[in-house]
Amino acid sequence: MTRLADWINERIPVSGEQLRELTNEPVPNHLRRWWFCLGGTPAYLFVVQIFTGILLALYYQPAPASAYESIRYITEEAAFGWYLRSMHKWAATLMIAAVILHQLRVYFTAAYRRPRELNWVIGMALLMCTLLTGFTGYSLVFEQLSYWGATVAANISDAVPLVGGTLKMLLLGGAEYNEHTLSRFFIIHAAILPTTITLLVIVHIAFIRMHGVTELRFDDDPPNEPRHFNFFPDHITTELLIGLLLMVVLSALATILPATLGAKADPLTTPEIIKPEWYFYVSFRWLKLFSLTFAVLSTGFILAAMFLWPWIDVGLRKLTGNEDISVWIGVGGTLLLIGLTVWEAVVTH
């Protein structure tokens, strides 16, 4: 036994003390409140996505001739295929929701302020990657809506000044949606974006560990309570709990509302009612409200502002002298987002 331990220790020279330190980071007390665990939720869902995604990729064929049929095979014939596919779909939805909620929490607690500006930028990049993964994943299904969604999105990217044409060409692998497009989407969805997300998450967590978690004090906290609790076993059980809760919710959604398969993509007929996934309702409505160029430019401007918010925030505070200016802007922005999403959701056209 000791020989084996020695053998391992020699090759992996990490002491038990170091391991404990690594895993047993003290966790600030405010994390006992569940809404501060929203950052862990997308991470957990990301693991679910990697797991189910690898399984689905075993049968998926990224070619227009066979993509739809392979998904039909997964849904109808492969054992538990429908369940895994539904899990993948719902985990994607929940993941995007969780990322957005996490970001809102960070925003409204002003956790992006000095010295954590860069982590906010990484967080924004993660949000973009997550949305892009959702979009490319949905396009892989090759049913009518996903096909036309991809076509519309490609033409939106075309409207970006200067680089638009190149962007579209790169995205579609040609001037139009063609036989090379699906394999491109597949590689973006299953290789490029997951790798990018993984790397960004590592840096994101590394930044958190370097800065320490933002600590917050609440008025109703008992004054003498210790300000930290242990990662193990206290916080890990919380994470396990959240993980299981997510699995139960996912299972319930997958069985009650399993992923369906619409009509196969038909490049000659656009469906009467065409909508993207819910997380793009905002931009879809935005596009309907303004001219294409304006919508694209304004979206780009808003995104740039979001990326640079920690610095803009400083400027605004100096300019206005109001410490809470970001909160009010945040409330306004959130209401606008919700409003546009709901608007798009309730109307057919």
Binding site: V14, Q18, E21, L22, E25, P26, P28, R114, P115, R116, A206, R209, M210, H211, G212, V213, T214, E215, L216, R227, H228
Partner: peptide, 21 residues
């Protein structure tokens, strides 16, 4: 990673006090 975490603990930011942690 371990060194990062040490670094983090010793220099944890302005919002928390390193002594406390």
């Amino acid at each position: 990673f371990v060194s990062i975490s040490r670094f983090g603990l010793m220099n944890s930011g302005q919002d928390s006090t390193s002594q406390d942690s």
